[in-house]
Simulated scan of single mutants.
Amino acid sequence: MRYAFRTGLAAATLVGSVIVPSVAFASTSHGARSASDATAADRCTVVKRGGIGAGLDVRLTMSPKGPSVVFVDEADGSQVKDLGTLNRSHPALARSAGIDVEILNAYGSTPQLLAKTNGGTSGYYEIQNFPTLPKGCSLDEGTVVKQCTVSQQDGIGAGLDARLTMSPKGPSVVFVDEADGSQVKRLGTLNRSRPKLPASAGIYAEIVQPSSWEPQLKSKTQGGTTRYAFTDFPKLPKGCPLY
């Protein structure tokens, strides 16, 4: 039996764009806090604004949590709320929006925005770079791993399930009692550093190609001439990296 889980869960820069550090100021009983009190997230967030045509501007934000985009009316600077926000979990506008806009390389350090606001053959695609993170700032790897981790659970015989997890750090396997759902701790966890159960485990289980994009679990829980079973790990979501 299979169960699916997701634990979080694929070139022209416009002239005149402005990049500014984004620092949030909150009112307190002592007045607005100073820039020196800004959090690390504030200091590492930068914003750039540029046009994409059809009376629209885009506000491109880059932070340790990745890129995001909001759409702004070119005339009055108000947010076009009907188009929502683009980010890693929602990297492209739906077709019903009437324009083509998508974040490319959303999990990388150099994402880009691909946009086409004119339909048919009259328009063309333009690519804008997101602003670069300030010196000393970097993408939050923990956030990437959380957003890009997917799991599934499959029966492998002898009353055992295998919970197969795929993340940017590669594949991992824990073994689960099919009857009560508890982890079979004596078998431990398989991963890149421990890809195979020892012979003393009583069953055969091994991650095949643990450093690849398409690893498999090779398993055999019965003796004799029983054949090995091969189970694919779930695929990383679109755009997610593999470290």
Rank of each mutant, 00 (worst) to 15 (best):
V58D: 07
Y124A: 04
K135C: 10
P111E: 00
T117P: 09
R59E: 02
V80P: 06
L83G: 00
D73M: 03
K48D: 15
A94Y: 13
G136T: 09
T110M: 14
G136M: 10
T132F: 14
L104N: 10
A106Q: 15
F71P: 13
A40Y: 07
T110I: 10
D100F: 04
R95A: 13
E102R: 08
T39S: 15
A97K: 08
P134V: 09
S109W: 05
R88S: 06
L114W: 15
P111L: 00
T39P: 13
A75S: 01
I52L: 12
T117F: 02
L83K: 06
L114Y: 14
G55K: 11
L133K: 09
P111H: 05
S78K: 10
A38R: 13
N87Q: 07
T45P: 10
R49D: 13
L104A: 08
K81W: 14
D82V: 00
L60V: 02
A97N: 08
F71L: 01
C44K: 01
R95C: 08
A97R: 09
G84N: 00
R33V: 15
G55C: 07
N118V: 02
A54D: 15
V80F: 04
M62L: 09
E74W: 13
N105A: 09
G136K: 07
D100I: 00
G120Q: 03
A75C: 01
Y107T: 00
Q112I: 03
R88H: 02
A97W: 07
A92C: 07
L83P: 06
S122T: 10
E126C: 07
T39L: 05
